[in-house]
Design a protein around this nucleic acid. Sequence first.
RNA 1: GGCGAGGUAGCUCAGCUGGUUAGAGCGCAUGAUUCAUAAUCAUGAGGUCGCCGGUUCAAGCCCGGCUCUCGCUACCA
Length: 677
Amino acid sequence: MSNYKRTLITSALPYANGPVHIGHLAGVYVPADIYARYLRMKGEEVAFIGGSDEHGVPITIKAKNEGVTPQDVVDKYHNIIKDSFSRFGISFDVYSRTSAKVHHDTASEFFKKLYDEGKFIEKTSEQYYDEEAKQFLADRYIVGTCPKCGNEKAYGDQCEACGTSLNATDLINPKSTLSGNIPVMKETKHWYLPLDQYEPWLREWILEGHKEWKSNVYGQCKSWIDGGLNPRAVTRDLDWGVPVPVDGADGKVLYVWFDAPIGYISATKEWTADWTKWWKDPETRMLHFIGKDNIVFHCIIFPAMLKAEGTYILPENVPANEFLNLEGDKISTSRNWAVWLHEYLEEFPGKEDVLKYVLTANAPETKDNDFTWKDFQARNNNELVAILGNFINRALVLTQKYYNGVVPAAGELQDVDKDTLAQIVSLKADVEKSLDTFRFREALKIAMDMARLGNKYLADMEPWKVVKTDEERVKTIMNTCLQIAANLTIVFAPFLPFTMNKLRGFLNMDHLEWSELGRTDILLAGHKVKEPELLFEKIEDSVIETQIQKLQDTKKANEMAAVTAAPQKENCSYDDFSKMDIRVGTIIEAEKVAKTKKLLKLKIDTGIDQRTVVSGIAEYYEPEQVIGQQVCILVNLEPRELKGILSQGMILMAADADGALKFVSPVNAVKNGSEVK
RNA sequence: GGCGAGGUAGCUCAGCUGGUUAGAGCGCAUGAUUCAUAAUCAUGAGGUCGCCGGUUCAAGCCCGGCUCUCGCUACCA
């Protein structure tokens, strides 16, 4: 297990249709960076790989909406992302991008090899095609009427009015967004990776061979494998991406999920000509740092690809994190509910490490977590300033005051001094154990305990009192304090790299290796330290209030956007309207449909008859509370079977801004069977 | 509904293959202290470990059922 020679660390490629936010950082980049720095300090051979994921349909949509090319879109975000990572101090060895030539070549070759060796299966299927634009349409390029709520601007994959996920073929009156024409069904050929064939192998490799993976990761994999794996298309009809390198595949590109993980390989190639030792030597340990949304790709699909190719190593672990929420709500790029890294860097200059600290201390390692600005402030003021910064300041101020900044020689150590120094060694072992098992928040807490140790030692020793009676003893005390400070620069270096650089400056120290952690003679007697500045500064309430206000403004803007009524639909004739027979009826029976979340089976007295209607309202109404309710019902809608029950008609519901459904019924009771017109 | 993850002090979280009075940080209370960015240090209060059964000499940890939260998935005429 542990006789690896080197470690390859990959971090999920951020999708280049937006900047990076704190959710990405907490879940992937901060832990990956801590781990990479830790291994480097231990003198291990490390490659830390990153890059932008620049293909896929959403980018082409964004480009179209903004009237620019997809390349313009990815150039813009790739640069923002790369720059903000660099300023934030994520220590990638290489940060590449999937639109790079090296990547196109690598992904192309990878596909070609599997293709030549017959690792794919070919399938022909029918998909919507725009004859004028002469291209197949991705789901997002098709709009039509949502079969559920009647919204005429539903997309082929989802209706944004009611949140339903759809297939393009579900849409009524589908239209191409490229030309506005009605698309036709046309045959198209694609290549599929037969994941089902890899199931026995995956079962063996993960379920038997990697029981040590985090429970959230292992559980997800087990769920997918037990649920049965299906062949998955590796190509798409699209003009943005890596062209499929076989004859007769014009207008087809590699599906983005297929090319993106190969981006790790391409980036490594871009970084070093000696890339094969990182990818093909069994003595290399590969780790994927990702968020939970990526588990299936990195644990099932990409390994299956690598296995199919045959010459690559497989990940040794995939320490996936859960999600970070922001002030109680899910982070959302489209709703602008996020703290963006590039904005943070502008608004909190010099506080890169503060964000790293807070995101690590509250990392979503075992479950979703919440980032709040109040917590951010508290952790800065109560932990970084009060414990770590304060200890350093106390130690250095006293050193200046008593010795003009020259490290005093320690005399004979008393038991209390020895115990204190011994605790550093013991904390070192604890930190290592946590870091080695990817428990970063625990590791950080232990590092902070070392600063606590310093504060306690100072408080117990009271050098400011002893100095009046025993100057020799104070020299030993202060020497010990300075050794603790020097040790802190090592133990915190993976977590707070900028701050520890600064602190090494105060201490006038060179960079130290992890192995020196625990030493009690890092600073020699006679060594001169500098006048200290503050390591951290307090964050005032007003700064936090500004950030909270900013989010509240976003929330208000979102609410305003949400209450905007959908635009009026096209006119219809009176004839069209009069075809619909809408009546008032009364619900006389109601029960939940078994094995569904949303469906209620209702019996309605329509005045005409008593009939059964299945309605998707179970999330908003309990069966008991709807009995006796008068409702409007479309009685001449084609009957349809749902979950084995014939539904004869449709209850009219008002959909509120948040999607909640409310009955539409007469203000005063009317006779059942009354027409609505 | 199915599958996965989670439900432990006011808040954020630890609790390894079951074993004496269930832990930490923050917050709170009290005391000590002044070298320090009113920071620090000590002590204390606070938990029926989601609920109900079961296995066991012994369960937060194992088994069964239920319930709530999050994710994936099915249903939405």
